[in-house]
Design a binder for these strands. Sequence first.
RNA 1: GCCUGCGUGGUGGAAUGGUAGACACAGGGGACUUAAAAUCCCUAGGCUUAAUAGGCCGUGCCGGUUCGAGUCCGGCCGCAGGUACCA
Length: 847
Amino acid sequence: MDRYTPSEIEAKWQKAWADADVFKATRDGGKPKYYVLEMFPYPSGNLHMGHVRNYTMGDVIARYKMSTGHNVLHPMGWDAFGMPAENAAMASGGHPKDWTYGNIAQMREQMKPLGLSIDWSREFATCDPEYYGQQQALFLDMLASDLVYRKNAVVNWDPVDMTVLANEQVIDGKGWRSGAEVERRELTQWFFKISDMAGELRDALEGLDNWPAKVRLMQENWIGQSRGLQFSFSLINGPDGHDGVEVYTTRPDTLLGASFVGISPDHPLAKQLEADNPDLAAFNAECRKGGTTEEALEKADKKGFDTGLRVRHPFDTSWELPVYVANFILMDYGTGAIFGCPAHDQRDFDFATKYDLPITAVYLEAEDSAPDLQEAFVPPKSDKVFYAKGFAGEPVQTGDEAVEAAIAFCEAQGVGQGKTQYRLRDWGLSRQRYWGCPIPVVHCADCGVVPEKKENLPITLPDDVSFDIPGNPLDRHPTWRDCTCPSCGKPAQRETDTMDTFVDSSWYYARFTSPQADTPTDLAEAAYWMNVDQYIGGIEHAILHLLYSRFFARAMHITGHLPASAIEPFDALFTQGMVTHEIYQTKDAKGRPVYHLPEDVTDGKLVDGTEVEIIPSAKMSKSKKNVVDPRSIVEAYGADTARWFVLSDSPPERDVEWTASGAEATSKFLGRVWRLTQEIASSEAPQNDADQGLLRDMHKAIFEVTQGVESFGFNAAIAKIYGFVNALAKSKAGAQAKREAAKTLAQLMSPMTPHLAEDMWATLGGEGLVLHAAWPVADDAMLVEDTVTLPIQINGKRRSEISVPKDMPKEEVEKLVLADKAVVKALDGGTPKKLIVVPGRIVNVVI
RNA sequence: GCCUGCGUGGUGGAAUGGUAGACACAGGGGACUUAAAAUCCCUAGGCUUAAUAGGCCGUGCCGGUUCGAGUCCGGCCGCAGGUACCA
């Protein structure tokens, strides 16, 4: 007999699909549309198993929706700007553009054999001038709509390489190449006004019913709404121009426990004092050392510097508080100044203890409780406490009530105002790098910052650049930077910052609806295809990418590029787990880590015998080289095996650790299905008693697999298919019933293993492509079992079971249970305390 | 540090609060074969037992709710993701 030869089958059916152009998406009023999108890949050059998993999942959904009568859009593109291209240019010469387009070509060639149902006519890369030119047009529209502005913000500064570093490039507070201690330095940068929409972005989360609850929760916490009071402490001995310190607090109810005022080292007051106070200048400089990440700032030792300034307490002008500069206060949040209440905040408590400041309890657990002097007393805000030093509201009230009462009181007294504040900061989009979308503005000595004219777009990147010196080549380009002012025509200079690559990925989903349009979108196409019905991608994008996309969809609506119905661009979201792998590391002569590909490591050693350090599994990433190339699997076993395997072995939302074993087994199984199909196709067995049983199994399989696919339970669906195949192989049913069952099997498998399914379908005499066959529907009547097995528990432990007709009344079940041998023995002549019968499920006898 | 998840046999994992371990991998045994490959069949959480029946233990740890907890609640431990310039 012939063998299952995936290489022939897969080539044959991919050609059939291509010849019929079956995946080309066009508007069609006759069918409901369905837009399925997987997060597009960064073109690292190698497809890895994480990609295969991601795109196979999307493909299952796309193909399933095609067979349920939908007009499906399933596009693919490349998130092509970003640092790795520049790093490659620095490391081994060449140009980021060549590197990137080379990688794209390579990955496309690796992706195509997978047989994905992608409309390749819509493909684009974000580094195509046609794409980023439209992005520049969007930027200009957003600028005109007052959604973009400039302000100062801190970056990681490498004082040796004289360049800005990404957070990733700061290792233990030091620059990755120079090893120099990194400093935080301020630069004027471009920002999107996402924080203006904080409340809206937070409230709208509630409507995202088909998003994972955890993602909504993470975004909610990220946006971080808080209610508080903003007010001013008047300065007693402030320098010129500073007669007060504006603070924001979420706990105005603790105002009578205030012990000090803290300001950020970047606070204007701190900067002014720095000029005449070398000690403070040194302190601030020390505070500015290290990276900019929240983690680094948060984990740093908390320290302060007494400025010698004093402020007056707003409720008692004779009460003075010291003003400290403190490294844990961020200029970006609130007003960059706080008051500390050590009794009810652990950080303030530690600070007060360190600097010997008073600790005054404002509230106690109850009226007669003693204040805790060992640590701050911080009960949940929803708990009732006794206010020993309250000034508004009841003596016993919750923290939430007390905060509201305190705000009302302060407002009435003219001490500040209640304010709803968000943790979410504006989105800084400036990057001091070459390989990104140029920000289309010009700096003119006379006119200031001038937007480029739309007819001059795209502002393309110059090709003649080098990466032999650190820093942004655009900054030192001899001619690109020079231009004329679009407003007055005098010589001017281009903005040399490029855009954050998150901008590129914040609207690509909209561009896919009309990828060739000479405006960012074609509104008619966008209105038809948007929203994305099912978006699929990694959980690592739960906050930034998804939040930025939600902001951008709103901005695109404001600027007329998306309909109002598309401001939440992703109707349903599925976050797949990551594919993880061990990391293999050695050290170079300077002690810096060097990573090795899994294929270069055998038994913990490199080819030359060097032992590698094995670091536990983490997300596959190119920089750590813990990636597995799917090509070897596709070449050895075929795409269907690779597809089936990545779906079968793990629940889609969970991380999966890649191991090489298992692909072999999948291949065997598909071979078995193929042979079984050949057998059935040539069988002439007559009808018989087994037919009904097989058809029941078939309908059960239809029901369960459909449910599995619809709920992203692909691994469960596959387990049911295994069960069905086992039943089919063992069945003694006649040829006709078996053929019907096998054709259904082909259909059920077609989203996962489309090539094999087409082949089975053709072998069994199916009409046309299985791709176009309507998805089978389970017959409810065939799913009903007549008798059920009821487990009998005695005191919650399974002791026996009975088989009863499905509809047997409770009373009769009880009689049978009480007559059961195990129950009789356990009762030993007594009566049960309780008899619980859950119809069709279980019985519990409580003794 | 903070936010969010996750933790079940040797392994991947299944299980609307209702028989824990479906389905599969690796393993063990067998059939076929001169032999191997391929294929097919059987077996399988741990302990106890000659074996079966039966019993006991068991879903990271400790406690709680419930007739009944892998599932719900509280507290720990470990791991992963994010932490605003990795994408």
